[in-house]
Amino acid sequence: PPQTPIRAAMTSIQQLRGDLISSGDQPSTNLATYFKNCTVDPTQDVLKRLETLGHVYSQRFGQAVGPRSTVLGMQRFNLGVRLYYQVMEEMLKMEEQRLSVQNFSKLLNDSTFHSSLLACALEVVMATYGESRYKSGGVDSAETDLCFPWILDVFRLPAFDFYKVIESFIKADHTMNKDIVKHLETCENLIMERIAWRTGSPLFELLKQEHAGGAAEQLETPAS
């Protein structure tokens, strides 16, 4: 039978929490092995970054939602970390299969990759709790303060970099329900259509590099 919006949200939340119970709040044995296989072990940087971003996130969450919500923000963050580790492990397994490598040192020492992945995990958590999806009720409710791209501002993350993880995240998280996938697709479209084109986006540097690289090539003659 069709669910009421509240029942659907509660089911979604229960499913997310249930899926993440078995994930620890520390890297699993498999994930720790990927870290150790790196030329430069990223473990300490990962843990330090999580501590810093956890503090930043919960403070900003409290500012957005209300002074007593900092603890709630920390709970959301902790769920996000579990999801982040879980999806990271699955991504690395998929990459290992695709590329036949076990040393992901460059990727796992890239702080933008980690911030993007964590931001995506938190976006999924907040969307599950109904906090970051656009509401038809308008802009007055506190929930809309957490709406995407709020997380990009909190992590000072360029939208273009966040965009890079979305598809791989959806591929790697097999339990995501279609409403959350739809939400990430909405974020993706917003980035492609608008946010990635704002001043200061890394996209412009990439375009410059592509243009400079292609300048020596002959122009294609127009097709007849």
């Binding site: 991504m91 590329l99 460059k106 990759f113 890079k164 990430l184």
Partner: peptide, 21 residues
């Protein structure tokens, strides 16, 4: 099930997107 369009080719993945190929 969802209808998300996966655009990455088989030879493309997170490693290439973060310039780690």
């Amino acid at each position: 099930s969802h209808d998300y369009h996966f655009g990455l080719e088989d030879h493309e993945g997170i490693s290439e997107l973060f310039d780690c190929d």
